[in-house]
Amino acid sequence: MALPWARPAAAQSSDVYMCKGADGVPEYRNGNPGNSKDCKRLNLPDVVTVPGSRAGGAPSGGKSAAATSPTSFPRVDSATQKSRDSERRTVLETELQTEEARLAGLRAEYNNGEPERQGGERNYQKYLDRVARLRDDITRSEANVASLRRELSGLKD
């Protein structure tokens, strides 16, 4: 017995016409082109649709794809993994310290929204641009610090 969803099905199709629009731009229309004289019927191949997998997403064999890894998949012993985790923690802590130092420097320069004017900022707009850039840099640095702390909190001890 053939299953109706196991074979491709031709989609419902209608005639497609290419017409010249008012400004000369081509327009594509389904079905009847209407009263337009500048329309040509396009000879397009039939559209074929293939149904997707079942709603559960499981293959037809009934086994879950993520249940087991192949036997040829490389394994890492626990000592090597602990070494890698320790190295990763060290790198993240170093990045966090660097980013916190950068953030402290930016906040000191920002001076609560009133940084010292520099010699090249005779034009007040240049000063305002630098203040806005400092504010954006502080926001970005705060987000980086939060992200690094979140990543460090997720590491295994």
Results as ranks from 00 to 15, higher is better:
41 R>S: 07
118 Q>E: 10
31 G>E: 01
93 E>A: 02
90 T>I: 07
40 K>F: 05
47 V>K: 11
102 R>L: 08
38 D>E: 15
133 R>Y: 02
86 S>I: 06
35 N>P: 09
144 N>L: 12
7 R>K: 14
10 A>H: 08
90 T>R: 14
126 K>M: 11
124 Y>T: 11
33 P>L: 03
54 R>L: 14
26 P>D: 05
70 P>H: 10
141 S>T: 14
9 A>F: 07
4 P>E: 15
97 Q>G: 08
113 G>R: 07
41 R>F: 04
145 V>E: 00
116 E>Y: 00
140 R>P: 00
24 G>S: 04
23 D>W: 00
77 D>A: 08
50 V>Q: 10
144 N>G: 01
62 G>C: 05
4 P>G: 04
112 N>T: 13
24 G>L: 06
62 G>Y: 06
16 V>N: 01
22 A>R: 08
47 V>Q: 12
29 R>A: 02
79 A>G: 03
151 E>S: 07
10 A>I: 15
45 P>E: 08
39 C>M: 03
141 S>K: 03
102 R>W: 02
157 D>W: 02
15 D>V: 14
110 Y>C: 03
11 A>C: 13
53 S>P: 13
146 A>Q: 10
112 N>H: 12
47 V>M: 11
126 K>I: 14
60 S>C: 06
77 D>P: 00
143 A>E: 14
12 Q>M: 09
60 S>G: 10
91 V>A: 12
47 V>E: 13
76 V>K: 11
127 Y>M: 02
88 R>S: 11
1 M>P: 04
144 N>W: 01
135 R>E: 11
88 R>A: 11
59 P>R: 15
10 A>W: 10
109 E>I: 07
17 Y>C: 02
86 S>Q: 13
26 P>E: 04
6 A>W: 07
20 K>G: 08
6 A>S: 14
67 A>W: 05
44 L>Q: 08
18 M>G: 03
128 L>Q: 14
87 E>N: 15
88 R>P: 00
50 V>I: 15
74 P>I: 09
30 N>K: 09
30 N>C: 07
15 D>S: 12
88 R>H: 08
102 R>Q: 08
65 A>Y: 07
149 R>G: 00
89 R>Y: 06
100 E>Q: 15
82 K>V: 05
45 P>N: 05
136 D>I: 03
47 V>H: 06
140 R>Y: 01
117 R>F: 00
58 A>Q: 15
86 S>N: 13
136 D>M: 05
23 D>M: 04
79 A>F: 05
20 K>V: 14
88 R>L: 15
105 G>S: 11
133 R>G: 06
105 G>P: 00
1 M>Q: 10
109 E>T: 14
81 Q>N: 09
32 N>P: 07
46 D>W: 04
139 T>Y: 03
6 A>L: 13
123 N>A: 10
4 P>F: 08
96 L>S: 01
9 A>C: 06
117 R>L: 00
122 R>K: 09
155 L>V: 05
1 M>K: 10
66 A>Y: 07
98 T>I: 10
60 S>W: 09
137 D>Y: 01
15 D>W: 04
85 D>Q: 12
